[in-house]
């Protein structure tokens, strides 16, 4: 079963956001990393840019497929996880090993806090995952 921490907010596109003050730390969910498997490259193309909620902000390359990452909230992308961003070798696989911890992707300075209400809580996201799982 995919882990879905209770203290995070989620998107329908399988990102998570940990909101602390006006900063959102962003990553992809355990369900998403498992679907993608074998992450080999991460790039946050929107680093330093101001983005709107649901804008693409970067991409993840797995062995089998490429997947876009979308902004859970509007704001400025102020930081990336330098341990994995554009890294080679084993480092990007941290997204698989620890998607909610060391596998975080970027931080957004939130410009429209009211959007937080539009994100899914853990129970709503668990429902979404349940519907997406074939087995």
């Amino acid at each position: 079963m995919a882990q879905i921490p209770e203290d995070l907010k989620y998107t329908k596109t399988h990102e998570w956001a940990r909101i602390e003050g006006d900063i959102a730390t962003v990553g992809i969910t355990d369900f998403a990393q498992h679907e993608l498997s074998d992450v080999v490259y991460v790039e946050i193309t929107a680093l330093g840019k101001t983005v709107k909620q649901n804008d693409p902000i970067g991409f993840i390359e797995a062995v089998k497929a490429t997947s876009d990452i979308y902004a859970p909230l509007s704001g400025e992308v102020i930081e990336v996880n330098t341990q994995i961003h554009k890294a080679e070798g084993e480092a990007p696989a941290m997204v698989n090993r620890d998607p909610y911890g060391q596998g975080w992707l970027c931080r957004i300075k939130i410009s429209h806090p009211e959007e937080i209400n539009s994100l899914l809580d853990h129970t709503a996201y668990a429902e979404l995952v349940k519907r997406s799982e074939h087995h």
Binding site: S37, D38, N96
Partner: peptide, 8 residues
């Protein structure tokens, strides 16, 4: 099965 431990 598409994978067990991981493709790599």
């Amino acid at each position: 099965p598409v994978q067990f431990k991981g493709i790599i």
